[in-house]
């Protein structure tokens, strides 16, 4: 299945997520007008969500994104691990 969500983060930027999923998340693409430094880290953040259960709690997704972001030394502006996780959950429905 495929799901999409689009949200304007209050005080932040627009984040759109496309998720391919079955019982588990099979693919994730995050697009929007946010900033992320280094830019290459977005691919790592997308990848860290693949394989998670589609019904996983939002909090667990936040933790996975935060851990990956910390490992990659990421600074996010106009977006956050919470906003990404919320968008993923919205896309899965």
């Amino acid at each position: 299945m495929e799901g999409r969500s689009r949200q304007k983060i209050p005080g932040g930027k627009l984040v759109e997520v496309r998720v391919e999923y079955g019982e588990r998340i099979l693919g994730v693409e995050i697009v929007g007008d946010f900033f992320m430094h280094p830019e290459e880290a977005l691919g790592r953040i997308e990848d860290c969500l693949i394989g998670m259960r589609s019904g996983e709690a939002e909090g667990a997704m936040v933790e996975a994104i935060r851990k990956e972001a910390e490992n990659a030394g990421v600074e996010m502006i106009g977006i956050s691990p919470e906003a990404i996780a919320k968008a993923i959950k919205m896309a899965i429905g």
Partner: peptide, 9 residues
């Protein structure tokens, strides 16, 4: 477009 945007969209 920004680095993370979709051209088609």
């Amino acid at each position: 477009i920004g680095c993370f945007q979709s051209m088609e969209e």
